[in-house]
Design a protein around this nucleic acid. Structure first.
Length: 420
RNA sequence: GGUGGAGUCGCCUAGUGGCCGAGGGCGCACGCCUCGAAAGCGUGUGAGGGGGCAACCCCUCCGUGGGUUCAAAUCCCACCUCCACCGCCA
């Protein structure tokens, strides 16, 4: 969500953002509604001021005047009611359009309709070379008894999986490593709800547009969140934070649920695209200062890279194109990790800066040292998301004898074992 | 699942229909006092929207949404959240 004043003063900038992000939003309609809405607001305010004066006078009036006032009020209320209805109709529509307004993307972002316009910023590491025929993670996991797919799908349908034995320990090790790392660098560890209400989903921008992607539980007016970000933003919804509390840094861990409705029958094999997964997420709320936000973006991205480097996984960092980054984002960098079975890099992390787009929706504000109330800036990035990253570890570190070489940083979490 | 209680301006609290256009205390800010501070005294102290060149002015908000009334923090209904107890339970 953008600032209305900004839209009024910079309609062309907004239109440009709508265009490069490939969105369907009529900025002129929005501007017209905004103007209509303000006019109606003024009329309603004025009418209400007058209406209030009737009641004031009533208390002091004699019986004759009271009868007059009652009659006048009734007539006046009809007009007022009509105005109110008009106002609520225009403001509802205005709000609908406001929720669809995009963050103006970073000028450095490649302009393009979709991910094919993304550019590689840098790569790290070298994809492993095998002197044997490596298995993909599905074959390897099944061979070692580390996963069940056919049976899992009997239980939970397509894209379901069961991790078994050492794969469970390895998954847990990845999350433990990420949590310890973040805890050590000042992030507050937060284990948050996945079962959430509608408001935080609207606040984070997952709704209304992303409805098809989210599991709904209508009996309880609840939803299953696709990321811990939903709860982490929601925790501070409606608050005015003291500047001294910023930046807020959270490492959120939660089960994540996604319907994957837009990618039906894609990646149906294995652990790459599943409906339920486990993610440690980095999340920051900071002041509305672009330089500071940029620094956090770099740090969140750097932390994710350091995790992959520590694991010894080759990856590339991608600058996401305007059409790929999503409505609310100012800048987005994906990190794609090498998957030997695919012979390419696949997304394992996604780092986003949203400026105050999310904070405006969720009404997360802070009071500056000077006493002014501002919307905060928010950023987020994956730290570790499994089982996708687990699959990368399985594929990259398999050995000729069908074993798995455990990355050194994970060994402390696996009783010091060097291979599984 | 059941029963009872509660949600007021950062915090505590007053407020059972018009004098609430929300009072008091704490905290905070500024000033006076002081060598300096504390104490004391005084003043100020929310958010959102709108109008005006401006000084200013108006509207909305007492958990949320409805309702009753000329008039609602106050009365009625529903919901949300919290607390206590009972039942069930990982």
């Amino acid at each position: 969500m953008l600032d209305k004043r900004f839209i009024r003063e910079n309609p062309d900038v907004v239109k440009q953002a709508v265009r490069v992000k490939g969105l369907d939003l009529d900025v002129d309609e929005l501007l017209q509604l905004d103007q209509d809405n303000r006019k109606l607001q003024f009329e309603v305010d004025t009418a209400q001021a007058r209406r209030k004066s009737f009641s004031k006078e009533f208390a002091k009036a004699d019986e004759v005047r009271k009868a007059e006032l009652r009659a006048e009020s009734t007539t006046f209320d009809k007009q007022l009611q009509e105005l109110r209805e008009q106002l609520s109709a225009t403001s509802a529509r205005l709000n609908e359009l406001m929720l669809a307004t995009p963050t103006i993307p970073w000028e450095g972002a490649p302009v393009g309709a979709d991910e094919s316009a993304n550019t590689v910023v840098r790569t790290w590491g070298t994809p492993p070379e095998f002197d044997f025929t490596p298995l993909d993670h599905v074959d390897l996991a099944e061979k070692r008894g580390w996963a069940e797919f056919a049976r899992a799908r009997r239980v939970a349908g397509e894209r379901a999986y069961v991790l078994c034995g050492d794969a469970v320990l390895l998954e847990r090790a990845l999350h433990s490593y990420a949590l310890d790392l973040l805890h050590g660098s000042g992030f507050r560890l937060m284990s948050v709800p996945s079962l959430v209400k509608e408001a935080p989903l609207v606040g984070t921008g997952m709704l209304p547009k992303g409805r098809a992607e989210i599991y709904e539980i209508p009996a309880d007016d609840a939803f299953l969140a696709g990321t811990a970000e939903v709860s982490l933003v929601g925790l501070h919804a409606g608050e005015i934070l003291d500047a001294s509390r910023l930046p807020i840094r959270y490492a959120g861990i939660s089960p994540c649920f996604r319907r994957e409705i837009g990618s039906a029958s894609r990646d149906v094999r294995g652990l790459l695209r599943v409906h339920q997964f486990e993610k440690v997420e980095q999340f920051v709320i900071c002041a509305d200062d672009q330089d500071e936000s940029d620094r956090w973006h770099a740090e969140l991205l750097g932390t994710a890279e350091s995790i992959l480097q520590a694991l010894g996984l080759a990856y590339e960092v991608v600058e996401c194109a305007t059409g790929d980054m999503g409505v609310g984002k100012y800048r987005m960098n994906d990190i794609n990790t090498w998957f030997p079975s695919l012979g390419l890099f696949r997304e394992t992390h996604s780092c986003s800066s949203l400026k105050d787009w999310q904070a405006r929706r969720a009404n997360v504000r802070y009071r500056t040292a000077g006493g002014e109330v501002h919307f905060a800036y928010t950023l987020n990035n994956t730290a570790v998301a499994t089982p996708r990253l687990l699959a990368a570890v399985l594929e990259n570190f398999q050995t000729a004898d069908g074993a798995l070489r455990v990355p050194e940083v994970l060994r402390p979490y696996l009783g010091g074992r060097e291979t599984l």
